[in-house]
Nucleic acid binder design. Structure first.
Lengths: 299, 299
DNA sequence: TAATCATGATAAGTTTATCCTATCGATAAT
DNA sequence: ATTATCGATAGGATAAACTTATCATGATTA
């Protein structure tokens, strides 16, 4: 097979039309260059050079192939340049997973920020449950994901982004008296509405009110926070609402939202990615940005 | 420097996403492929592959460079194809020199023939005296040339094309009686007009009439056959006219043209080229074509 | 949980490429 | 005729690339 080295030597020879000077040009000895040119001619099965005592002439075929060869050399050089450029932070495609209890609130804030500050970044968003995020990141279908920590997969790298406190939401005209702040023990488990199975927030809600174990849960689960809070606003029960959702959901549903007493329960939102992905600087930059976006939604 | 081999391995790896299968694809062992990929990453200073236990993933940079790399590989393959095609007969550029006493008569016949039968041929014509033709062919400024043989340069290859007989031309109303056929001895050297120095035909004319040595020559030389024959037609003298020029010049000048007695003097038109040019089949084809064109002008 | 399998990396040794210095033969220039 | 120049060749050293065998580590399965 022909080599790039041979092409470089040929290029030099075509430029100088002299084996000795061409060799000097590419910093090898003249016999080395001669040998490579001969190799090239054998591989291509074409006589490229006409050897004369007074210099080297290109044959018709050599002349014909010269532009193609030079074009290839330019492409190869360009490849090196591209490779160097490709190391820029947050450029190209980034496949980002986000869990459903975060996505609808964070995305409207995060995406415009990314668009503005990293215009070369092409974000592909996917809303997935924690297990989906973890699996897809693990298998390279996603570059990273925003989930609640811990995610229970130690083969992945993770870093915390921000704390997202839980509050209690009830209908505005709820006749049940909600004291503020309230304690976990005061949660009426009969009226507690939860997301469907698989959402980490469901498990976290149960864990928060775990001291009330034994009471039955009001229903089998809503498919999204929006649905859940709509149910709450219609007086069908109460629920835990993450602080990240408060601003947005308040504009859509008339609700009474009450904090827990200190220490307030919360979830930790974090970024996960593969150890070996080699995009650490990307992850750091993204983490800082998401933290900024998240905190803007809080308090 | 990055190599084509590395790019081929990378291509295979990007296709299979598996070191083992990629190695099989390019017929090397897996460690060999691994090593080349690592070399490539080191040279480009970019991590191209993310190694996992379950296969190999392309990094963002790897994904970004893949199209470029595949494009280069395609160019290289295309180069091989082109090299094979480039061996076709009479294609591409052909730089052809022709001496002035042949060119104006042969070219109008030859070029249309070349155009029709070898449309891929791009002929660059130059009209040069024999010495110019020989020097330029020798130094690679021409690929070949049509001259009168012998040309006196044994470092060049040559082959005869056709015989071009000499005739005597005089004005139509010439009062000097020209017998037909005439012998060389009958040429009136006082009235013999010649081309300027450097034209082989001048020397040949003098050689033909050499038996009349001692007589003075009428003038110092015309710059072209056309000029010379115009002078002849105006009664300023007589001259040797090569048969190749007869048909054309007769249409332009009223002249009396008389052959020599047998054995008729003639010049041999031939093709010259460099031994090492490696275009022997081109030369043969061209020689046959020029012979055909030349003979069409004769008789 | 332990055993097995699969994957890419590593080690050691061999083969192949590539290069260098020195020299040759042929041509061109003096 | 002599000298200089040019590309090819020879011999030997060095570097690159390959092979087989093996390892470490996740993933899969019993």
């Amino acid at each position: 097979m022909i080599t790039i080295r041979q092409m470089r030597y040929f290029d030099a020879l075509a430029t100088t039309r002299h084996f000795g000077r061409a060799a000097e040009m590419v910093n090898v000895s003249q016999p080395a260059l001669s040998a490579q040119i001969m190799e090239m001619e054998n591989h291509l099965e074409v006589k490229l050079i006409e050897r004369n005592r007074s210099g080297a002439l290109l044959t018709r075929q050599g002349e014909a192939l010269l532009p193609d060869i030079r074009a290839i050399l330019l492409s190869v050089d360009a490849l090196h340049d591209r490779a160097r450029q490709a190391t820029g932070v947050l450029e190209g495609r980034l496949r980002l997973g986000i869990i459903p209890t975060v996505a609808p609130y964070l995305v409207p804030k995060l995406i415009p920020m990314l668009r503005q500050r990293y215009p070369k970044l092409d974000v592909e968003l996917r809303e997935l449950l924690t297990t989906g995020c973890v699996d897809d990141v693990k298998h390279g279908k996603l570059d990273c994901a925003i989930v609640a920590l811990p995610h229970g997969e130690d083969s992945l790298q993770s870093c915390p982004l921000f704390e997202d406190r839980f509050l209690i939401a009830s209908a505005d005209d709820e006749n049940t008296v909600l004291v503020s702040p309230m304690t976990e023990a005061q949660v009426d488990m009969d009226r507690l509405l939860l997301l469907e199975e698989g959402h980490c927030l469901r498990d976290q809600a149960l864990a928060v009110c775990g001291s009330n174990a034994g009471r039955s849960v009001a229903n089998y689960g809503a498919t999204s926070m929006a649905t859940l809070l709509q149910m709450v606003s219609h007086g069908m029960g109460i629920t835990l609402i993450p602080e990240i959702a408060v601003k947005d959901e308040r504009t859509r549903n008339r609700m009474r939202i009450v904090p827990f007493a200190e220490p307030q329960p919360s979830r930790q939102i974090g970024l996960i990615w593969r150890n070996r992905s080699g995009r650490d600087s990307d992850q750091q930059t993204l983490a800082a940005l998401v933290t900024e976006a998240g905190k803007a939604l809080l308090g």
